[in-house]
Simulated scan of single mutants.
Amino acid sequence: MDVSTISTYTDYLTKQNTKADELRNTLNKTDYSDADDEKLLDACKQFESYLLEQVFKEMQKTVDCIKSDDDSDPNQNLVDYFRENTLQELASTSTEKEGLGIAQMLYEQMKRNYNL
C-alpha cells in the first residue's frame, strides 16, 4: 500500500469527523435563550441534515455487497470520498427543499420549551 494513500485516507477520515464535531460544538456553545428565529431554525436544519446523512450512509451499506476487500485499487479512496460528499449534499439538499419535518418540529419545540 502506498504511503501517500494512507495520508490521504487519514485526512479524509479527519474531514468526515469534522462535520459531526462542528455540529456538536455549535449546539453545545450556543445559548438559545437569546437566539433569533433564523439562527434557531438553521441549527435545527443542520441537525436534520446530519441525521439524514447518517440514514443515507446506513442505507448505502445495504447495497454495497459487491465491494471488494482488495486494497490494490488505488481509486477506491477517491470513490469513497465522492460517495460521502454526494451523500452529504443529498442530505443537505433534501433538508433545504422539503425535509422530513424534523427540523420544523424541533424548532417549534425549542421555541415552546425555551419560551422564545
Rank of each mutant, 00 (worst) to 15 (best):
D37I: 04
K45H: 03
C65N: 11
Y32E: 05
E53V: 01
M59R: 02
Q46W: 05
A35Y: 00
N25M: 14
A20I: 11
L27P: 10
K19G: 12
L41C: 08
D34Q: 07
I66K: 05
E38Y: 02
L52R: 11
K57S: 09
S33W: 01
A43D: 14
V63W: 11
T26Y: 12
V63G: 08
D37Y: 00
D36L: 00
T26M: 12
K57V: 06
K57M: 02
E48Q: 04
D42M: 14
E53F: 05
Y50S: 12
D37S: 05
N25R: 15
D21H: 09
Q54P: 02
D36Q: 01
F47M: 07
D42V: 07
M59K: 09
K57R: 06
C65I: 13
T26Q: 15
V63I: 12
L52Q: 13
N28H: 13
I66H: 05
K29M: 09
K29Y: 04
F56G: 03
D37E: 10
V63N: 13
A35D: 07
D36C: 02
E58Y: 03
Q54K: 12
E53H: 00
D37P: 07
T18E: 07
V63C: 12
Y50L: 10
C65E: 06
N28F: 10
A35V: 03
A20Q: 11
E22D: 15
S33F: 00
K39V: 02
A20E: 09
E22C: 12
C65G: 05
L23K: 08
L27C: 14
F47P: 02
D36M: 04
C65V: 15
K19F: 14
S33G: 04
Q46L: 06
L27S: 05
E53C: 03
D64H: 13
D34E: 14
C44Y: 00
V63M: 10
K61Q: 10
V55T: 00
D34V: 03
K61H: 12
D42Q: 12
T30P: 11
K39I: 01
F47L: 05
C65A: 08
T18V: 13
Q46N: 13
K29R: 15
E58G: 03
L52D: 07
E53N: 06
Y50H: 10
T62P: 09
E58Q: 06
A35I: 03
R24W: 02
R24A: 09
K29F: 05
E38M: 08
K57Q: 08
E58R: 02
N25S: 14
Y50G: 07
D31R: 10
L52G: 13
E48L: 08
K61C: 04
D37T: 04
D64L: 14
D31I: 01
T18S: 06
V63Y: 13
K45C: 00
T62C: 13
L27W: 07
L40T: 05
